[in-house]
Amino acid sequence: MRLKILSDKAKAAIEAEFPKYPDKRSVLLAALRTAQDEVGYLSEAAMVDVAEILDLTPVQVYDVASFYTLFNLKPVGKHVIQVCKTLSCALVGAGGIIEHLQGRLGIRVGETTPDGLFSLKLVECLASCGTGPMVQINNRYYEQLTPEKIDRILDDLKREGKSSLASGPFQLPVLGGRS
């Protein structure tokens, strides 16, 4: 059967995971990630394609896709901003960051800007507790945020689609001991 929406490249990427596991079903989460990366969200057609590739029923795929907040079953903005609001971040000002983002973007949490550029979500712990407040935008972390930093990040993303304020690898809060 021909696939509805996924490319041959996505299909090959999914099939490349098969040798890792004794059965095809185990590849489901990886397959959904691949599909979401390609389509932008998990449309019905994308889920049917995944079911086809993995010899599952569409319902089995939907059951898993709808369980995880990681998967978007509806279209989202080009840049999905996920703000951590768990205790460690809340203690150092996540609330103010959320307010500021809502004000700047003119949307509430859970919404997408009319131009389709930004979606705003609240999430639980992203394991950056030592460098809060922080957000994840698509696959990058932005840490030790201030309202000014947020403004610069949003401007960068609008203008260039990326921002140099993203945390680089191997930046540490404080590692070690006595100073």
Partner: peptide, 30 residues
């Protein structure tokens, strides 16, 4: 240990088990 919240130096501190919580907060966390 991962030290966070209202301390001057949040971060990672590898310490021998049995170290005191006071030291972690006051000495290491500032």
């Amino acid at each position: 240990f991962t030290l966070t919240g209202d301390v001057n130096r949040p971060g990672l501190y590898e310490l021998p088990l049995g170290s005191s919580l006071r030291d972690l907060i006051e000495v290491y966390g500032g």
